[in-house]
Amino acid sequence: MKKFKYLLIACLAISLFSCEDDDIVKLNDSEYVPASNIEGFGTTLEISKPQKAETVTISYTPASYGVDIVKTHKLQFATSEDFSDPMTFDVDASDNSFSFSVGALNEFLTEDLALTVDEEATVSARVMTYSLNGVDTLYSSPVNFKTTPYLDILFAENTFYLFGDGVGRIAQNNKLKLNKVFGEPDDSWTIVWMEATGTFKLCSDVNYKGVIGKVGDPVDGEYTLGTVENRGEDIPVPGTAGYYTVGVNMATNKLMIEPANVYITGPNVDAWPVSSVTEENRFKQDTENKTMYLTKSFLGGELRLHVTHPYISASDWWHAEFIFLDGKIEYRADGGDQERVNIDGGEKTIELDFINQTGKIK
């Protein structure tokens, strides 16, 4: 009886594995057909800011693996028809189509594909299909269309922003804001991590000229900014990766870059500018972790931090003061006195991360 049971189990096992093998053979022998008939882009896809809430629908004929198997379709874009650097759009398919807003597409085109706003570009699109592990991914034939991305950021009035590969913000829609200087309305500044190579430009609302760069070479470290008539060229980064302070003086239409100089002042060091602006009170750079830090024995009291730059009054240090509250850096800019934070005396490390705009005490 036991022998019969073992024989029966063995037969069932052989039958089960045979069925699984048959399924694999069927899948491998099936004809794979990628998605096709992509429609909706047209020859030219017109997009604009007033249309940002409108819906774009792209239809297609789904791919087939020749058997009933789970499959997922995704929409991919590239700036070349050979798709040497494809980017996948984060939108799910439904009823053999993709639906998304004009605004979502514009954000993808400017930030993922890094297309320049207000310049017509040719874009390639295709449908990618994938299934279970080990099953080939299928790609449709690409379709090409022309489109012109638009600038879509909410600008603060009379405020500059940075963008460019040299400052880690490739698209104009993904920008770094310059801070205003209290009592000095023509000046603004920001601390930004700059890569070893690359460039950047400024962008703003129409009152501040839109997108501008430099005109000519720097003189004594100062760049002349572009104008509406001559918007200028990209501004190169200094060439060594690190934190830099970018200052803009609208009265002279100049821009100056210098290594970031951040200082502690006030009760914690028992001194005030300009006497507190010394090397022992200056934050050091941790290049590996892309932070700035200061380690020393502090006195207890209110934490006061500020930046120095040739465009900022040295004696009026509080014009460019900042603090971190609940771990987030807050700038005084052109506002009033900030909320204060007290620290206890003793050996501590203050760490600032200007990429993520955070601060902490360790």
Rank of each mutant, 00 (worst) to 15 (best):
L154W: 03
K290V: 05
L305M: 14
P238G: 13
V70P: 12
F322E: 10
H306Y: 15
I312M: 06
L132E: 07
V211H: 13
V117H: 02
H309K: 08
A93Q: 05
S276A: 07
A13G: 12
S297W: 07
T295H: 03
E195S: 00
E54S: 08
G242W: 09
L178V: 06
L325H: 10
S275K: 13
P86C: 13
I24H: 12
L109I: 01
G213K: 09
S99H: 02
T79L: 01
Y32I: 13
E157F: 10
T129Y: 15
N356F: 07
M128I: 06
N158R: 14
G183L: 10
L113K: 06
E195H: 12
T88V: 10
Y60R: 09
S275M: 15
T287K: 11
L109K: 01
E229T: 14
T129K: 04
E157H: 11
T57V: 06
K146E: 08
V181A: 10
F283V: 05
K214S: 03
N179G: 01
N174T: 15
G327K: 07
V215R: 12
K290D: 09
S15P: 03
R304L: 10
I170D: 09
M194K: 01
F4Q: 03
K3D: 07
L115N: 03
T224H: 14
D316R: 11
F100M: 05
P267N: 04
T265R: 11
L325A: 11
T190Y: 10
P267Y: 14
F4G: 08
L138C: 00
L178P: 13
E321R: 08
M1F: 13
T349Y: 04
N261P: 03
L75V: 15
G301Y: 02
V91T: 07
T287A: 09
I323K: 08
L45H: 10
L176C: 04
R340M: 00
T43N: 01
T61S: 04
R231E: 14
G216Q: 05
T190N: 07
I24D: 02
K362I: 11
E120L: 08
F160N: 11
Y139H: 14
L115G: 06
H309T: 13
H309L: 02
G213N: 04
Q51T: 07
D205F: 13
L154I: 12
N37K: 13
N268T: 06
N179W: 01
